[in-house]
Design a protein around this nucleic acid. Sequence first.
DNA 1: TTGAAAGCGCTAACAC
DNA 2: GTGTTAGCGCTTTCAA
Lengths: 335, 335
Amino acid sequence: MGRTRVRLKDVAEATGYSVNTVSLVLRGSSRLPLKTRELILKEAERQNYVPNQLARSLILQSTKMVGLVLTDIMNPTITKTARSIELDLAAKGYGVMFASSDNELANEKRALNHLQSSQVDGILIYPTNRSEISHIQNIAKSGYPILMLSDIPDANLDVVAIDDIKGGNIAVSHLIEQGHKQITVLDGAKDLGNSDKYDGAVAAVKAAGLPDSAIKIVDPEGHAAIHGFAAMQKAWASTPRPTAIFASTDSLAIGAARWCRENNLNIPQDVALVGFDNTEAAEFCSTPLTTINYASEDVSKHAVERILSRIEADNATEDTVITLIKPNLVTRESS
Amino acid sequence: MGRTRVRLKDVAEATGYSVNTVSLVLRGSSRLPLKTRELILKEAERQNYVPNQLARSLILQSTKMVGLVLTDIMNPTITKTARSIELDLAAKGYGVMFASSDNELANEKRALNHLQSSQVDGILIYPTNRSEISHIQNIAKSGYPILMLSDIPDANLDVVAIDDIKGGNIAVSHLIEQGHKQITVLDGAKDLGNSDKYDGAVAAVKAAGLPDSAIKIVDPEGHAAIHGFAAMQKAWASTPRPTAIFASTDSLAIGAARWCRENNLNIPQDVALVGFDNTEAAEFCSTPLTTINYASEDVSKHAVERILSRIEADNATEDTVITLIKPNLVTRESS
DNA sequence: TTGAAAGCGCTAACAC
DNA sequence: GTGTTAGCGCTTTCAA
């Protein structure tokens, strides 16, 4: 292999033209006579010529690729956003190079390194850990266009993200409006320094004039439905019992709903339930889930626009921009 | 940007050594004196040097990357396999470059072209269309290592895939064992020339000595739960009514289950339901779903092993190998 | 209208 | 121990 790959030189030798001429033709130059062009194009086709982007990018100092670091490729919300970003970038002539951190800092560092050494023109990242972002800041400082898809205050980095505080606030305000006075939040992101959804929830409780004891938190210690299942059991075992649950992801909510069914609790009569993300599963689970919509397309649109402006303006050191997208409530049967 | 990126030359000039020496040190050569090495490593670190893989790969004639073409990035089964492949490849020192076709032939061709021009060392692909694979065959013919993750008979290409015929057969045999004599299959892959699951289902009916009329097919015209919902309505409206449904994906099954709930049909008393893929949602949906397990890890393991052997043996033209993985039944409450 | 030469950042072969 | 040279496949001046 490798040596069997067709190069410009091969097409040049076969047609008798120089490498330069072949290159010109294949890039669609119109200043060559039609005859030459046809001859060369035909030969390239015949030999199945595929341009070598490596060589091309090396010269052009641009790969027309944007790197995207995901925390969890199995999370449908993140995947959906990734897909949206891929489409939006493609529309602008850019490709995307994926990498996943699996929520491990070491993986994240490795991924960033790999993307940089692959010479992507810019990087979009769902950061793993709020308290450890110096490596990201270093990349930004070195003049590399980079943007975070999750809000980390005072990071001094570009951000385009869903406003989780607002989201948590909306979810719990909704529950309070329904008359609930004892609410448990299922959220485990705190260990990564992120308690935005919970903070928003607490703010809603305060704003409603309820006592601090009106809200509690249970750490599901994981992201999958099975963790929501276990967390719900814990939540239900505590005194006083909650009358409503706010799960920080739909996946946790679905697990919680399952525990309720198995224990003969009716949703929303015995416990109300609100999720976060608005995944397909939320719509089709046993009791269609009230949830906070994660507007993937909006995140994508703004993120792509921003990173491309940094890339194409040669990253002229403008100020950092924080774009927070306000999420909305989708009311269904679970609350 | 670009010009601001640090090169070997920059580190060389800063330390007074030649580019070659710096290169040697950074690649971990031990034949340089410790002093030199430390000096150079420190300077590289200080300047935040990141090697340029483009240049490196151009010389080495290898990117240590494998391309992976997915049909649908939102399909959890495909995503799960992708993740598994990513891990298995990483363990062997390879990265993976994703591309998605969204089940469109034109996208698939574009993706393959892009991967080839990015000089990936080999390609893994979930093909979009069974009847149109000449472009894949051409790639293989040109000596490029490529392997399909879905079985297309007589394609004369390497395959590692789940045995869908067997899967369909197991699913329907199970339903027949439960006493069902009127079964409807929800499967829309036929337009892409793939009716393996249905074929397996039909074979099960025949093997049980049931008449041809014991099995029917409804095309959901889509992959999402919502399509399963509509297809279930159609299935239920036909005469004679089915007593059991075999959905070709869990997503369709979940949509079908939802239709049943909304129409006060109990699963499995009024209709039994079997899905395919064994996704997390199947386990946590209203009635936990009996389904066929898609063994992502097995597919990944064999596919990675095979593509790497082609890559590392310089694709010495061996015979094509078809590896079909026999799926197993996961029995839950829906049947 | 076409070709020759230089060079992108790196590695490898061979000097010294 | 370290430097020099050539060259990976391509694009880009600049000549002819």
